[in-house]
């Protein structure tokens, strides 16, 4: 083929330049609906959200799953094996009883509420603190950024559990539930603050932000209307994942004897109590631990799948 002048036939007509190919009948696709579409097509999301939905039902209506009061402990029925009928209470103990004679299954069912609530409250409080501080630091910059970033660094340098142990010692006499929530929130907000700061810094240089500045929009309005909505999506995923961390940390604190005490029905308390009967009845340690692991894993999977869905590069189609 020498440099012959080749011309394709004109059979297929040329498209109009940059024609709009959207028809009025087609459904509108916002970034949000794309994310939802990607989520519901991700098996990881389906499985984890189903488990979490079940957990939510358990936490809200524990009475649907067991008729036994978890705090009604009968010492005569202590340490019964799996699936035995109590002689005294005449009730069926699916997972046996604890060393104090409480029904293990009922304790796990009722413990779900405590774990979910701790995780939820800590997530909401710590993410809120993190988002507000991170957004202020990233958006306004300068000296404000320096101050907030250094404070974040200080808190970041304290290990979560270690800091919590120290603070909980100070709050010895406070309400056992809220002191744990407060403590974990105080040490948990740093990662979301850092993430929010960098996300806001990236978003604020976008041209649509400059455009609205040139339109005369107020600086704070821009922050709330354009910057935060576009910067927040990575935080949502991290918040979900962090819930698993808080739920595990709550149990770890109970295990260390500084978190919630026996007045609260919680997986962590049960795990701590199971130490004494580890040799004779290892199941008491196993069941709450499994419940804890499943819950934590579900939150991680949920966070991961949300993270994939909001990142267009990882999005499943």
């Amino acid at each position: 083929m020498e440099n012959k002048h080749f011309v394709a036939d004109f059979a297929n007509n040329l498209d109009e330049v940059d024609a709009v190919t959207i028809h009025s009948s087609a459904k509108s696709v916002s970034a949000f609906s794309k994310t939802i579409y990607s989520l519901v097509h991700n098996p990881l999301f389906i499985v984890s959200s189903l488990i979490l939905f079940l957990l939510l039902i358990i936490a809200v209506f524990p009475g649907l799953f067991t008729q036994i009061d978890p705090t009604r402990c009968v010492i005569r029925e202590a340490s019964l094996p799996i699936g035995t009928n109590g002689e005294y209470t005449k009730s069926f103990h699916l997972l046996g009883t604890t060393g104090l004679g409480c029904d293990e299954f009922a304790r796990i069912i009722y413990g779900a509420r405590t774990s979910l609530l701790v995780g939820f409250f800590v997530m909401v409080i710590s993410t809120s603190i993190g988002c507000v501080l991170g957004a202020i630091a990233g958006y306004f910059g300068g000296i404000l950024d320096s101050i907030i970033s250094r404070i974040t660094d200080v808190f970041f340098a304290i290990p979560l559990i270690l800091g919590a142990v120290a603070l909980l010692q100070l709050l010895k006499d406070a309400d056992p539930f809220w002191k744990v929530v407060l403590t974990l929130s105080i040490f948990g907000w740093t990662s979301s603050a850092r993430l929010m700061r960098s996300s806001v810094m990236e978003t604020k240089t976008q041209e649509y932000v400059t455009s609205v500045r040139a339109l005369g929009m107020e600086k704070l309005t821009i922050l709330f209307k354009h910057v935060i909505p576009n910067a927040i999506s990575p935080i949502i995923a991290i918040a979900m994942i962090s819930m698993s961390v808080y739920i595990v940390a709550d149990s770890a604190l109970s295990f260390l004897g500084v978190g919630m005490n026996s007045s609260v029905v919680s997986w962590g308390v049960d795990i701590a109590n199971a130490q004494t009967t580890l040799q004779s009845n290892p199941g008491l340690l196993l069941y709450p631990s499994i419940a804890l692991a499943i819950t934590a894993l579900s939150f991680m999977f949920l966070g991961d799948s949300i993270n994939d869905a909001i990142d267009p590069k990882k999005r499943r189609r």
């Binding site: 509108s28 916002s30 970034a31 949000f32 976008q206 041209e207 649509y208 400059t210 455009s211 040139a214 339109l215 005369g216 354009h226 909505p229 576009n230």
Partner: peptide, 25 residues
């Protein structure tokens, strides 16, 4: 007066993918 001034002068930027807020219709 600054807000009025901004009405009279408007920019169009380079990057077609960055110049519109992805969350706004």
């Amino acid at each position: 007066t600054l807000k009025n001034f901004r009405r009279l002068m408007q920019p169009v930027f380079q990057n077609p993918y960055g110049s519109l807020d992805p969350l706004l219709s």
